[in-house]
């Protein structure tokens, strides 16, 4: 069985379906990059896969508690140090290996600095290092490279490659080239929802009344 398989998925934002009929599967060691213009619903789709919102139609099949989600906000507490932040998420998710995660994103020197004193790029790196301590096979990443410099992007690609080598998988929405030769690309543009077609069940007020 694949780690994650998505069948005929439709998701909605603001009560309107954005994409529909999306089908894909993700095996261990694979990465899938989602592309498409702004506002198409990439974020919404990722949130649905992460279990943060219910899909309008279709199925998302995976084992429970296998997704680690990372989006624009890193979930860092400014009053805690970098290592304290990581340690907290490691405890919550039941993972470990904080030092390894810090080293992977080149944060070891900054481990004892409060998150408030980190730059935007450093915070981002810390947010991505969090993925390693969750001990979850499927990483769902929404624009992970925002505010990262070229060197950091390279380091992140290495981290991703290492994760997949260990049997992990990643679902990524991004516009830049991550330098992952093994990653497949799925363009979501053909799946854009057409407003005229009536769904069996409206996704929200805006569809029920249009």
């Amino acid at each position: 069985m694949s780690l994650l398989s998505v069948h005929d998925l439709a998701v909605a934002r603001g009560g309107l379906r954005t994409v529909e009929g999306v089908t894909f599967a993700l095996e261990a060691g694979q990465a899938l990059i989602l592309r498409g213009p702004n506002g198409l619903g990439k974020t919404t789709l990722l949130r649905a896969v992460a279990g943060l919102q219910a899909p309008v139609a279709g199925r998302i099949e995976m084992r429970e508690d296998t997704v680690a989600y990372a989006a624009h906000a890193d979930g860092l507490k400014p009053a805690l140090t970098a290592s304290e932040n990581l340690a907290f998420w490691a405890q919550v998710f039941g993972g470990g290996g904080i030092d390894r995660a810090l080293a992977a994103m080149d944060l070891t020197a900054l481990a004892h600095r409060p998150a408030a004193a980190l730059s935007a790029g450093q915070k981002r790196r810390l947010g991505l290092a969090r993925l390693m301590v969750t001990a979850r096979p499927i990483w769902v990443l929404d624009e992970p490279t925002v505010s990262l410099d070229t060197a950091s992007v390279g380091r992140f690609a290495q981290m991703l490659a290492g994760h997949m080598a260990q049997g992990g998988a990643a679902l990524i929405a991004t516009h830049i080239d991550l330098g992952l030769p093994q990653a497949r690309v799925l363009d979501l543009t053909p799946y854009r929802a057409r407003p005229g077609t009536r769904a069996t069940r409206p996704s929200g007020f805006n569809e029920a009344f249009a």
Partner: peptide, 17 residues
């Protein structure tokens, strides 16, 4: 309320399109 929602829904659809 239904009329208001319908108007909002039509406007939302136009904005999306």
């Amino acid at each position: 309320e239904i009329r208001r929602r319908r108007l909002a829904a039509l406007q939302a659809r136009e904005m999306r399109a």
